[in-house]
Amino acid sequence: MELTTVWFALIAILWIGYFALEGFDFGVGMLMPHLAKNEKERRVMYNTVGPVWDGNEVWVLVAGGATFAAFPEWYATLFSGFYLPLLLILVALIVRNLAFEYRGKKDSDSWRKKWDVALVVGSWLPAVLWGVAFANIVAGVPIDADKEFTGNLFTLLNPLGLLGGLVTASLFATHGAIFVALKTDGEIRHRARAMAAKLGLVTAVLAIAFMGWIQVKTGDTASAVAFVAAAAALVGAMAANLRGREGWAFIGTFATIALAVAGLFLALFPDVMPSTTDAAYSLTTTNAAATAYTLKIMTWVAVIFTPIVLMYQAWTYWVFRKRITTDSIPDPVPDDAYAGHPGAEVE
């Protein structure tokens, strides 16, 4: 197997890891207003992803770095052509991450509410835009003979792209609801399971329409098998959720995301960015790749460091594996508790 194919597969695996892990982080943030009814429950939801969200984001950083090193032409065309949506994703991620870091810095209800809004918006926007971006990458975009993107933001906001955004948003929300049910107990756990059941139906309808459209447009037998397996995994996840088997339900939505992303990359291969202007202008694993020497060095680096990263992240999940309840959350301090005290902050 050629190293260009190996690195295409490795980049696909990195995106699978990112969407399957960061997907439930997005889902928790997206569902915050619907699942948490008081401050203690909001704290519970923050704590479900608090120890792992930053580790989950590493996957997208490595995916971007690997694309830059292994397929520089792909990276250049992608990041120049998709500059605005990728910038919006980056800003949203920064705002979302600030919510994790700054929400607890001040004992104020209004302060916490502002950061809760930042978390929700910073979760919804990437969840939608990642779907828009990948739908366009797989279906193709206008690229000229110089390998330059000739469209604009509105080119990406086509019906297939928008459907892709709805699919990723609903799938991440379902994944997040099941993760909350897996990691909590009490009322919020039951609320999350009920929400997952409703979201799962919406996700199934949207996903079937999207995957069918992609399959008709660009797919082959391999991608069709992956898409069918993804649909079966989602059905299994919903069945497990209805029986209260949150662990199996989470494995099911994890597998759904993994298989769906794998199907997209299988539909894309051997292209990395198809051109709708002229097929001859498409970027492929061959004409967009770095030199063989570069790929060889990268392969040795990946062989050495990838197992270390995987073991560390697995250890993190194992350490923070227990359920979280409101009983372990202290009572919030109201705004007026500090009124009249030295050093009290007045809003």
Score class of each variant (00 low, 15 high):
45 M>W: 08
300 W>L: 12
300 W>V: 11
332 P>L: 11
27 G>K: 10
292 A>T: 11
280 A>K: 15
115 W>T: 01
43 R>L: 06
87 L>E: 09
119 L>I: 05
236 G>C: 12
60 V>A: 11
157 L>D: 05
215 Q>E: 11
265 F>I: 00
67 T>L: 15
282 S>F: 02
263 G>S: 03
5 T>I: 08
22 E>I: 05
131 G>A: 06
154 F>N: 14
93 L>I: 14
133 A>F: 06
27 G>W: 07
147 K>H: 15
10 L>Y: 02
139 A>N: 02
186 G>I: 13
278 D>H: 13
182 L>S: 14
154 F>W: 15
185 D>L: 10
106 K>T: 07
255 A>Y: 06
46 Y>R: 10
34 H>Y: 13
44 V>A: 12
135 A>Q: 00
151 G>M: 09
73 E>T: 12
35 L>M: 07
194 A>G: 12
85 P>I: 03
124 W>T: 14
125 L>W: 10
261 V>K: 11
114 K>L: 01
178 I>F: 04
226 A>T: 08
71 F>K: 10
100 F>S: 06
257 I>C: 09
267 A>S: 13
138 V>P: 00
25 D>I: 07
177 A>D: 09
154 F>L: 14
250 F>H: 12
309 V>S: 15
113 K>Q: 14
197 A>N: 03
206 L>V: 06
141 V>H: 00
195 M>T: 15
248 W>L: 15
167 V>P: 08
254 F>Y: 03
246 E>W: 07
189 R>W: 12
152 N>W: 02
181 A>C: 07
321 R>E: 13
193 R>F: 02
310 L>A: 14
244 G>W: 04
295 L>V: 01
230 A>K: 05
312 Y>L: 13
238 M>K: 03
257 I>M: 13
47 N>Q: 14
96 R>P: 11
326 T>R: 12
114 K>F: 00
280 A>Y: 10
66 A>N: 04
99 A>H: 04
89 I>A: 01
106 K>P: 01
3 L>N: 02
261 V>F: 06
118 A>S: 10
275 S>P: 11
298 M>T: 01
92 A>G: 11
289 A>Y: 01
25 D>K: 08
97 N>F: 02
269 F>T: 05
44 V>S: 11
36 A>E: 07
263 G>D: 02
254 F>R: 03
235 V>M: 06
99 A>W: 02
111 W>E: 01
128 V>W: 07
126 P>N: 03
182 L>Q: 15
62 V>A: 08
204 A>I: 11
151 G>H: 06
147 K>L: 05
242 L>A: 08
254 F>P: 00
205 V>D: 06
43 R>Y: 02
328 S>H: 02
215 Q>Y: 07
40 K>M: 04
231 A>Y: 09
153 L>T: 15
307 P>Y: 08
228 V>D: 00
23 G>H: 06
140 G>C: 01
309 V>Q: 13
200 G>I: 02
111 W>N: 00
59 W>C: 06
12 A>R: 02
123 S>A: 15
201 L>F: 14
119 L>W: 09
